[in-house]
Design a protein around this nucleic acid. Sequence first.
DNA 1: CCCTGTATTACCCATTCGGATAATAGCCAA
DNA 2: TTGGCTATTATCCGAATGGGTAATACAGGG
Lengths: 236, 236
Amino acid sequence: MRALTLVPLLISPPVGRGVGMPDTMLAKSVRPIKLLLVDDHSMVRMGFATLLGAEQDFHVAAEAEDAEQAVRAYREHTPDVTLLDIRMPGGSGIEALTQIRAEFPAARIVMLTTYDLEEPLFDAYDAGAAGYLLKSVKRAELVAAIRLVAGGGRCFGEVFENRMSTRVRRKRLSLREAETLDLLRRGLSNKDIGIALGVSENTAKAHVKSILQKLEVADRAEAVAVGFQLGLLQLE
Amino acid sequence: MRALTLVPLLISPPVGRGVGMPDTMLAKSVRPIKLLLVDDHSMVRMGFATLLGAEQDFHVAAEAEDAEQAVRAYREHTPDVTLLDIRMPGGSGIEALTQIRAEFPAARIVMLTTYDLEEPLFDAYDAGAAGYLLKSVKRAELVAAIRLVAGGGRCFGEVFENRMSTRVRRKRLSLREAETLDLLRRGLSNKDIGIALGVSENTAKAHVKSILQKLEVADRAEAVAVGFQLGLLQLE
DNA sequence: CCCTGTATTACCCATTCGGATAATAGCCAA
DNA sequence: TTGGCTATTATCCGAATGGGTAATACAGGG
């Protein structure tokens, strides 16, 4: 059900994505775009603040360093565009995104990430992110993306297009399978997985088998590796 | 051989690590500390530059965004202190560190990292880093660390102490074992590992067995997970 | 020179794994 | 209601895995 709604987006970026975009000029002379920056690293926030503050029509209204602060800051400032880091200690950026969008369905939020993993990308898309960018974006690209999003557009960069094709064929893990994968990484045998999940060993085997199929891997070791690769598993 | 030389460092930070440090004052009135910043993310560089540039006795002489540029920039500017990101595309920070230290044995280089993984920490130590800090360090801490290092001190923060104890008992993987671990993550069977390494299946089994012992894990799946956890394996 | 660690190979054996197949039941959407 | 997905369980079976033990060879540090 997701794949179906995703495809059209790839071929229909909102008007203004390109060389001469009228939205930019409109925004420039009216009122500054109010921004909220969320990242757990103060260095990164400072970098963004410095970079974006240099634009005349941008105004960094607030910063936050975790999911909770992000939600509170949003309520207080209701920014035009929010830049939200995906991975933060204590509640991921996806959670913050979900929470903010629940309270403010019109919130325009651009997710930022260091690694090009596909799971968080799709989670972000599902949760209603307006954009998804790598932190390595060039200044001009970022500024353009923010203007685009402020104007109601969406911006899922190269990342999106790169990862889309592989995801179409790769099926998503079910809840149970995700739990099982997390037990695999901990070195549990099928029997112990069964015990941990409160099911029979045979059921655990079935889940593992299903994981191997969906992830298209040869064994549990590769499943764990791909789990990290896709962002299904995270360092802890 | 490493553990022996490391321990004393923990209890003997160079003079001046504390409240009233004379080195700071010395440096302040003499000449600014020349800095080189290396990080592949322009946002991060900008953050550091903004933050450090605000200190009167700091001077950000140059920036670089990969290992190669870092080495060239070092040759050109011979900074007092270099801030070097550990993970960068195309040659890790460790390589840059090694190369610079080979040419300039007195180079004072502080490694910066996002994740608190133990392998790069020890690699950095072995390669002669003067410090090792998480990117999440507070401004004051970073500034103090740079002054300390500029004065000839070393600074391996909380990270170091936390990770040291676990590493003392956990033995390092041999070259062959590291190669084997990388094949495990790709889902190869013992037989295929043997073929890939040009050895017998029995030898491959022996390597795998040794990995499981050294990493103290139950099976290859957990070995892969711990491999990522320790920084022995990286996302690609 | 000896000891340690690495790399290599080999054999045995019980356990585990992964593939194939199949059946039941619940839930949700078309 | 029907079809599809998930979750559950089960059985069969050959292959792979992990543990134990042991031997050889080579290199490097003490």
